[in-house]
């Protein structure tokens, strides 16, 4: 898995790619929670995710819950087919705000 954090001035973009599993999801979790601690919206780009398991999903759920508690935006953007099918299996595709890209997300979500 690769995990890159990009500072986009008004939000953080956490770009995950490759296989997000039990061995790599702690890194994703830390990146997401660190960004939220800086009190800016967090967008997680899943376009390059080829595999994500329940531990990876758990990292996203934890980020989403922390963001809600802090009153911050938390969105998934450009979700790959592999990630989308797991979100649907977990019935979380209607829970997370999901957008085609960061611009659409920042333009439409308060």
């Amino acid at each position: 898995m690769q995990c890159e954090v990009r500072d986009a001035a008004d939000h953080w973009l956490v770009v995950l790619s490759g296989e997000v599993d039990l061995s790599t999801s702690p890194e994703a979790r830390k990146a997401i929670l660190d960004c939220l601690a800086a009190r800016r919206p967090v967008l997680v780009d899943l376009s390059g995710v080829t595999y994500i398991d329940s531990s990876g999903i758990a990292s996203l759920v934890e980020g989403y819950q922390n963001a809600r508690s802090a009153g911050l935006k938390f969105c998934l953007v450009d979700v790959s087919e592999a990630a989308q099918s797991v979100l649907e299996l977990a019935r979380l595709n209607k829970v997370f705000p999901i957008f085609a890209n960061a611009a659409e997300c920042m333009g439409r979500v308060d």
Partner: peptide, 18 residues
């Protein structure tokens, strides 16, 4: 139960679904 939004506990659900 999937109506509980919390991290973890999805593994058995995935196995059962698949």
């Amino acid at each position: 139960p999937l109506d509980e939004l919390r991290p973890g506990g999805l593994g058995v659900h995935f196995i059962r679904c698949v």
